[in-house]
């Protein structure tokens, strides 16, 4: 038997390859069971990149569902609140070309906004409370409602259901606490200065 194997190259090759296949199959099978992931980690990573406004502008009922959809191959350019920055980082994560924002789902806004309820007009219908994806509106039936500004993601979802139209989306106030220095313009983008000094002045024209 052994002789047969040794002397017959085809049989020995088959046995060797078959054996290897079995061994690797077993290893892979074991790994698949042992190191099984409950959830696709990429969903979590995508979810971390999404802005968590839960606005549903992407067509999914929240950021996580959209993250799942992206993991399943949906387009990454459906998130207006995240804007191009989010698209870029998603493209980075998924190693694809970064598309531009799909205008169908809305436009990117530079200004962060939050909802404000004009409280004297509020009739206490609780419709906005039901619409708010992050429970950022408090109030009870027939009682005036108000928005917890710190928790509001600016998703816009409460504006539509309001029967008396008393919700405004207002830009977030930027106080001293939010103020920061601007990054200096990149060196390459200061033609005026460069030309001024090219003329040999000491930069006074700058």
């Amino acid at each position: 038997m052994l002789d047969l194997i040794v002397q017959n190259p085809i049989v020995s090759a088959l046995i060797a390859l078959g054996g290897l296949a079995l061994v690797f199959g077993a290893v892979l099978g074991f790994a698949a069971v042992r190191f099984r992931l409950e959830e696709d980690p990429v969903i979590q990573q995508i979810d971390d990149l999404l802005p968590q406004t839960q606005c549903g502008q992407c067509g999914y009922p929240g950021c996580r569902p959209y993250a799942q959809a992206i993991a399943n191959g949906d387009a990454i350019n459906k998130c207006p609140p995240g804007g191009q920055a989010t698209i870029n980082s998603l493209a980075d994560l998924l190693d694809v070309e970064a598309p531009t924002l799909d205008a169908e789902h809305g436009e990117e806004s530079d200004v962060k906004k939050v909802a404000y309820i004009r409280e004297d007009e509020c009739i206490g219908c609780t419709k906005c409370i039901q619409a708010c994806p992050v429970d950022a509106i408090i109030g009870a039936a027939k009682q005036m409602h108000t928005v917890i500004v710190d928790e509001c993601t600016g998703c816009d979802l409460c504006v539509e259901p309001c029967p008396v139209d008393c919700i405004d989306m207002l830009p977030v106030e930027t106080g001293l606490n939010q103020w920061k220095w601007d990054k200096p313009a990149p060196i390459e983008e200061r033609p005026l200065n460069i030309i001024a000094s090219d003329r040999g002045t000491t930069g006074e024209a700058a």
Binding site: I195, S197, D198
Partner: peptide, 9 residues
């Protein structure tokens, strides 16, 4: 497309 003199300096 850069000002050559500035960079030569």
């Amino acid at each position: 497309g850069r000002p050559a003199l500035f960079y030569l300096r």
